[in-house]
Design a protein around this nucleic acid. Structure first.
Lengths: 221, 221
DNA sequence: GTGCGCGTAGTACCGGGGTACGACGTCACG
DNA sequence: CGTGACGTCGTACCCCGGTACTACGCGCAC
């Protein structure tokens, strides 16, 4: 059973959503919020699988509400459902950590399948938006070397000392600086770096730093 | 009426697609191809709205066939439908200009709505893949003019192009790769990089990447 | 004791990254 | 019509980062 929270400032809209969802025997509405703050507290209390989130809401808009929900590490996946097909809304929403972005003119079945997808850990984006996302960013798509899925293992394979070195590399230190401040020979630092790159599958220290950030070995200031 | 071409090397698979599509009164199958070359010539002859494209095919695979169709400026939109949920396939396919990427385990209705979306100029991506695409690339989402500006004055002083370069540096790309994928000369890339380092006060690209993360120009996966 | 992982260190080499110039076309703006 | 910002490209140069290989002492497990 998928539990859903509805956050929208228009009661009629909430009613429509509720009727649609309750008509499905694998979904149940656990709460309704009329503004962003209310949405936050209801997410905390009911820990729903999915939160249907409108953007334009009083007190706290849906984007910021999404950001806080995600940041709090809640299990709830946020599916933004808004009236306006604006790029900046979508971008901000996805940036904030939303698992999906749909427009209210979508078919009811599309919303339902979207909720199920999000509840299952997948993501959904409105087709009209997907078009523009792809147009703008296909050129950024990487050529996958071996695919993802090996993130944590690579960091885990590092020794304590190597993790330490990687951490300071993530501070932007050069080999010379690392040697000085850790009282090592530069050749030693280089040896460590080479092993780190080999173990993590990184080509250079830049990619190693990125990995360090992605795995939260180091965190943004 | 949406006209569709089916390109798949398995006759049974083609049959299944045909039955499904012909059951819809707004779709008609205008041809079937068993390999990539055949797909090309049939697209030329029938100019269908949508080409359902398998990847693994004799003579010419679906990726390359897609590339040629798109390059030829055909009106036909390519919807890749493949058995394998591999990132590499999807990336290559989307790169090649496909309007969509679905996996064969999708529900029949999902395929149908996908075809309609693609025919209408939209794009579709399999939900399971969308998740990974977003995971890996939300950080590429542009800051829409008027959107949340980067607070850091150093980042703010960068030109649009420079921010773009810094973003891909933050993906771990080398100068050579940036040049190739952005269709620039390496010297141009170097020029940009040097300016970025000067403006941001970074000593090397590593420090620039760190700044990019700290200012949320790019965000950890 | 023998082996092994780990941290340390050295040398030699090479390639990419970064710098310092200079140059040119485009476009917006006063 | 200048003028400047921007993006593009080239050449020449230096140096740091990374590789390859070797080597040694330490502690720990079998």
């Amino acid at each position: 059973m998928t539990t859903v929270l509805i956050a929208d400032d228009q009661p009629m809209q909430r009613f429509g959503f509720r009727m649609l969802l309750e008509s499905q025997d694998d979904m149940t509405v656990v709460g309704e919020a009329g503004n962003g703050l209310e949405a936050l507290s209801l997410v905390q209390r009911h820990r729903p699988d999915v939160a249907l989130m409108d953007i334009r809401m009083p007190l706290l808009d849906g984007i910021e509400a999404t950001r806080r929900i995600v940041k709090a590490g809640a299990r709830t996946r946020v599916l933004i459902v808004t009236t306006f097909d604006l790029d900046r809304y979508a971008y901000d929403g996805l940036r904030a950590g939303a698992s999906g972005f749909l427009i209210k003119d979508a078919l009811p079945e599309e919303l339902l399948s979207g909720i199920r997808a999000v509840a299952g850990g997948d993501a959904v984006v409105a087709p009209s938006l997907t078009r523009r996302l792809l147009d703008a960013y296909v050129q950024h798509l990487p050529t996958v070397p071996g695919g993802p899925a090996t993130r944590d293992a690579r960091i885990a394979s590092l020794t304590e000392r190597e993790r330490e070195i990687l951490t300071v590399i993530g501070q932007g230190w050069s080999n010379t600086e690392i040697a000085e401040r850790l009282h090592l020979a530069e050749s030693t630092v280089k040896t460590h770096v080479t092993r780190i790159l080999a173990k993590t599958g990184s080509r250079d220290r830049v990619q190693a730093v990125i990995l360090a950030y992605d795995t939260h070995l180091v965190t943004p200031a």
